Simulated assay, not measured.
Amino acid sequence: MPEPERKPDVEIGASVKADELVFRETPEVTERAGGEPEGESGTDTDRRNLPRPAKPNVTYRDVRVSHRLSARLTGADPADEPDDEPDYDEPAENEPAENGSTERDGDEPGGR
């Protein structure tokens, strides 16, 4: 059975619309995406009433363009990595607790 495809680690989307749009010259569009140190990326563009390439001095009406960029790391699955992150549920030593005191569970009142 094939493995299910992982969702992207990052996804960015943008949409624009215009009642009228005229280009004075043919737009030059370049796109570059990637992941470091190892990654995959993909894009998806949905255009309405705007051909590719757009022609100069043509009035395009009711234009809508939506673009999505997604990327994911292709190295080890983050779920397989050991959790070296500190536990932020408890205050660190000598750090005030939520109630403002520096005591933590198990500490004796009055200092050391």
Rank of each mutant, 00 (worst) to 15 (best):
M1Q: 07
P2W: 13
P2Y: 13
P2N: 09
E3Y: 04
P4L: 15
E5R: 09
R6E: 11
K7C: 11
V10A: 14
V10E: 12
I12Y: 07
I12T: 06
I12S: 06
I12A: 11
G13A: 15
A14H: 05
S15H: 07
S15A: 15
K17H: 13
A18S: 12
A18C: 06
A18W: 11
A18E: 02
D19T: 11
L21E: 01
L21N: 04
V22S: 04
F23W: 06
F23C: 04
R24N: 08
R24D: 12
E25D: 13
E25I: 13
P27E: 08
E28V: 12
E28L: 15
V29D: 03
V29K: 01
E31N: 07
R32M: 14
A33N: 04
G34L: 06
G35H: 08
G35E: 02
E36A: 14
P37H: 07
E38H: 13
E38N: 09
G39N: 11
G42D: 13
G42H: 08
T43I: 10
D44M: 13
D44K: 14
D46G: 01
R48V: 14
R48E: 15
N49C: 04
N49P: 04
N49S: 05
L50T: 02
L50E: 01
P51Q: 10
R52E: 14
P53C: 05
P53R: 01
A54G: 02
K55P: 03
K55F: 04
P56N: 10
N57K: 13
R61K: 15
R61T: 15
D62I: 00
D62W: 02
R64W: 05
R64T: 11
R64I: 00
R64F: 07
R64Q: 13
R64G: 07
R64K: 14
S66K: 11
R68Y: 03
S70D: 02
A71K: 03
A71E: 01
R72Y: 09
R72T: 09
R72C: 05
L73W: 11
T74Y: 00
T74M: 03
T74R: 02
T74F: 00
T74C: 01
A76R: 10
A76N: 06
D77H: 04
A79Y: 01
A79K: 07
D80P: 01
D80M: 07
E81Q: 09
E81W: 10
E81H: 08
P82D: 02
D83M: 01
D83W: 02
D84E: 08
D84R: 12
E85F: 14
Y88A: 08
P91S: 04
P91N: 00
P91Y: 03
P91R: 00
A92H: 07
N94Y: 14
E95K: 09
E95N: 06
E95Q: 14
E95C: 07
P96R: 03
A97K: 03
A97N: 11
A97E: 02
E98F: 05
N99D: 15
G100E: 00
G100C: 00
T102I: 13
E103Y: 12
E103N: 06
R104V: 08
R104M: 09
D105T: 05
G106N: 08
P109H: 10
G110L: 10
G110D: 05
G110M: 13
R112I: 08
